[in-house]
C-alpha cells in the first residue's frame, strides 16, 4: 500500500495515552500500521494513513482510542443524502 495515501490532516483519530493500557490490540487490528509501541503504551505514528475503519476503537478494551468511523465511499454518501430527500426515499445502496 506504499503507493496509496489519501488526503492529509482529515482523520478524526484520537488516542488518549492516559487511558491506554498498552495491550497492543490497536497495532494488531490496524491495516495501515498507524500505531506503534511506545514504552509501555502505544503511540500514533502515521495519522494520515488512517482510513477511519474504526477497528482500533472497537477493539480497545480501555476506550483509549476514539475515531469517527465510517466507510470512505462517495456513492454510499450520495445514496444516504438522496434517501433523506423524500422523493428518493426507498433508494437502495449499491450493496457493497
Amino acid at each position: 500500500m506504499k503507493h496509496f495515501t489519501y488526503l492529509k490532516n482529515v482523520s478524526t483519530l484520537n488516542l488518549d495515552q492516559g487511558a491506554c493500557i498498552g495491550c497492543g490490540r490497536c497495532i494488531e487490528v490496524c491495516p495501515h500500521s498507524v500505531f506503534r509501541p511506545s514504552g509501555k503504551k502505544v503511540a500514533v505514528q502515521s495519522r494520515d494513513l488512517c482510513m477511519e475503519c474504526g477497528a482500533c476503537a472497537r477493539n480497545c478494551p480501555s476506550a483509549a482510542v476514539r475515531v469517527s468511523a465510517g466507510v470512505g465511499c462517495a456513492s454510499g454518501l450520495i445514496t444516504e443524502w438522496l434517501s433523506e430527500i423524500r422523493f428518493f426515499r426507498g433508494t437502495r445502496s449499491g450493496g457493497c
Binding site: L7, V10, S11, M51, G72, C73, I78, C96
Partner: peptide
C-alpha cells in the same frame, strides 16, 4: 470520486471533504 468506496485506504472524513 465514486470509486473511493472500492478502495481499502480512503477515509470517510477525506471523502466528505472531497465532496
Amino acid at each position: 470520486l465514486n470509486f473511493t468506496g472500492c478502495t481499502p485506504f480512503t477515509s470517510i472524513s477525506g471523502v466528505k471533504k472531497e465532496m
